[in-house]
Simulated scan of single mutants.
Amino acid sequence: MKVALGGGGGDIGKHINHGGGDGGDDDGDDDDYFDDFDEGDEGDEGGLFRRRIFLEELFDRKFVDAVLNEWHKTIMDLPAGFRQAYEMGLVSSAQMVKFLAINARPTTTRFISRALPQAISRAFIGRMIADPAFLYRLLLEQAATIGCSVWWELKNRKNRIKQEWDLALINVLTVTACNALVVWSLAPCRSYGNTFQFDLQNTLQKLPNNIFEKSYPLREFDLQKRIHSFFYKAAELCMVGLTAGAMQGSLTNLLASKKDRLSVTIPPMSTYALGYGAFLGLYANLRYQLLCGIDRAVVNHFDVIGVALVFSTALRILNAQVGETSRLAWLGLRARSFGPVR
């Protein structure tokens, strides 16, 4: 793939193209992820479902410098970690475009990244560079999870919802937090040059976030690493589930003990902890690993990014519904039958 220094495109590693800069045929539209065509060009050739042409990432320094020049930035404007990766030749021109698109002008993504602690901010930017739709996917997952959970609470607690709103709220908050952690943990991410004190930490950081994540410089993911990643993520999410389940179980049983009549069964704290641990570590881990693989395959297959996002949106909404039903079964939560309230 050839990229002109005054225009053209790049590839951030997920085969999602961004223009290289002004002066080309895009009139400076260098980072609009959701707009694939200029005005008047609807991409009729091949139709909406045409296949994407695979493009190679460009790590040549002159292309990366050209991107910096177009944005009127220098190497000193880059944060320390990203600057080190740039000096080592680990940053492609497309990655630089996406990074500058996030940080060089006011956007929602920049606002979020600057509001987060430094370590989390770097991880967030790394995920946005690896997948520009990460924030969209995360917000979609949260909305679908909250919607399914609230609907179940209203459906099963019925006229008792006013008396049991605190129990319902704990359920919704717990499942929402767990969903966010699963999506965050398994999302593809670009990271460079982190060095830790212990060898185990250095080994773990070289594993992919999911078994379908694409390799990149300093992060070559062979089959062994992908298998190790699956089991590591299973253990990690299992610990998250145990912690979240224990906290929810303690609070739920404490509040339930002060109520005379409950519309939903309340398992003991151990059931909450073990149920959430097994659910996240085994079932949710497997579902979201496969979902990440499908996301990558769809984005790589379709040239029109809107088509890929429609498929991803429908699949994630269905996944949220399946996940909510499965979670209730793993925890043993079910509605009780009562006669009419006097």
Rank of each mutant, 00 (worst) to 15 (best):
113 S>E: 00
79 P>Y: 02
224 Q>S: 15
24 G>P: 10
75 I>L: 08
295 D>P: 01
265 T>C: 15
286 L>R: 00
88 M>R: 13
214 K>G: 04
152 W>T: 15
144 A>L: 03
3 V>N: 04
206 K>M: 12
252 T>W: 04
43 G>S: 03
318 L>W: 14
137 R>P: 04
13 G>K: 05
41 D>E: 12
187 A>H: 04
231 F>K: 09
217 P>F: 00
326 S>D: 12
83 R>F: 05
186 L>S: 04
342 R>P: 02
82 F>E: 11
69 N>S: 13
315 L>C: 02
255 L>G: 05
235 A>T: 08
189 C>A: 09
170 I>S: 11
126 G>I: 00
255 L>D: 03
286 L>V: 07
63 F>D: 11
325 T>S: 15
225 K>H: 05
116 L>E: 04
153 E>D: 11
241 G>S: 13
109 T>D: 14
81 G>M: 03
182 V>S: 08
135 L>I: 15
189 C>D: 13
45 E>V: 12
180 A>R: 13
183 V>T: 10
8 G>T: 01
26 D>N: 07
314 A>Y: 03
106 P>M: 06
282 L>Y: 04
303 D>Y: 15
315 L>W: 05
258 K>A: 13
38 D>A: 10
35 D>Y: 11
243 T>D: 04
168 A>R: 02
106 P>L: 10
68 L>T: 01
284 A>F: 12
93 S>F: 04
273 A>T: 06
321 Q>A: 15
257 S>C: 09
192 Y>V: 15
324 E>W: 12
287 R>Y: 13
324 E>G: 04
329 A>C: 11
216 Y>Q: 03
31 D>P: 04
86 Y>H: 02
301 H>T: 15
231 F>W: 15
286 L>S: 05
22 D>R: 08
159 N>L: 05
308 A>K: 11
241 G>T: 07
310 V>T: 05
66 A>L: 03
147 G>Y: 06
53 I>P: 02
175 V>G: 01
218 L>Y: 04
243 T>I: 15
262 L>T: 05
177 A>D: 09
341 V>N: 02
133 A>L: 12
279 F>D: 02
2 K>Q: 07
190 R>A: 03
35 D>V: 07
91 V>N: 04
243 T>C: 14
